[in-house]
Design a binder for these strands. Structure first.
Length: 103
DNA sequence: AGCGTGACGGTCG
DNA sequence: ACGACCGCCACGC
């Protein structure tokens, strides 16, 4: 698997995340065969073509925090996830124990 | 070809 | 529980 395929793999894995669940960048990086490259997953999302319809809002960091609002729009990601049934804490973070995707 | 960067992660204070 | 710091690695300039 080459580096270019890494992005493709990331997209493929991200597209596999079921509704109501979330995955962490590190988790995806691990599944994509590049453990420790969580940041690259984030960049992959930035470069992700909209044509692929990637549910990038289901990808968060291990802290359960959402991506910067500047990426999706104000409260956009939060709203989408809540709509899908992802448990949120009042603090605005995700209940990772219950929402984390188990591939 | 080299340097800085970043939608992160884990640890320390 | 929260914030700050450092370490990783491919991509863009």
């Amino acid at each position: 698997m080459q580096k270019n395929n890494f992005y493709q793999t990331v997209y493929a894995i991200t597209a596999t995340i079921p509704s109501g669940k979330v995955a962490t960048y590190g988790q995806i990086a691990l599944l994509a065969g590049r453990p420790g490259c969580a940041r690259l997953v984030g960049h992959a999302m930035t470069s992700a073509p909209n044509e692929l319809h990637i549910p990038c809002h289901r990808v968060v960091n291990t802290k359960g925090c959402l991506a910067p609002e500047a990426v999706f729009g104000p409260n956009r990601q939060r709203h989408l996830l809540e709509k899908e049934g992802v448990p949120f804490f009042k603090s605005g973070r995700i209940d990772m124990k219950r929402a984390l995707w188990h591939p």
